[in-house]
């Protein structure tokens, strides 16, 4: 599944980041790389924008960007 399908409060592990070079570099400088654990903090209306947390970093991103991140939801 992809990151945008996660519900609020769910956590997941990143399995792949499928973005262009620039965006991928940006993600990785935020610590968003293969293997890290992600928490879904909240969504805006209609799930257009979401906030996730990786370690101590909170990141806001749009559903269109979240789609590019493959995750496996944890229990």
């Amino acid at each position: 599944m992809t990151l945008n399908e996660l519900q609020k409060g769910q956590s997941a592990t990143v399995t792949a980041v499928d973005a262009n070079r620039e965006l991928k570099n940006r993600f990785s400088s935020f610590g968003l790389v293969k293997g890290v654990l992600i928490y879904t903090e909240c969504h805006s209306l209609a799930k257009k924008t979401m906030e996730i947390r990786i370690n101590k970093t909170r990141i806001a991103l749009r559903a269109s960007e979240a789609e590019k991140i493959e995750v496996v939801a944890s229990e």
Binding site: L23, R58, S64, E65
Partner: peptide
């Protein structure tokens, strides 16, 4: 086209 929106949220 739209640009990606990725932004850090400070505490």
């Amino acid at each position: 086209d739209d640009e990606p929106f990725v932004m850090e949220m400070p505490k």
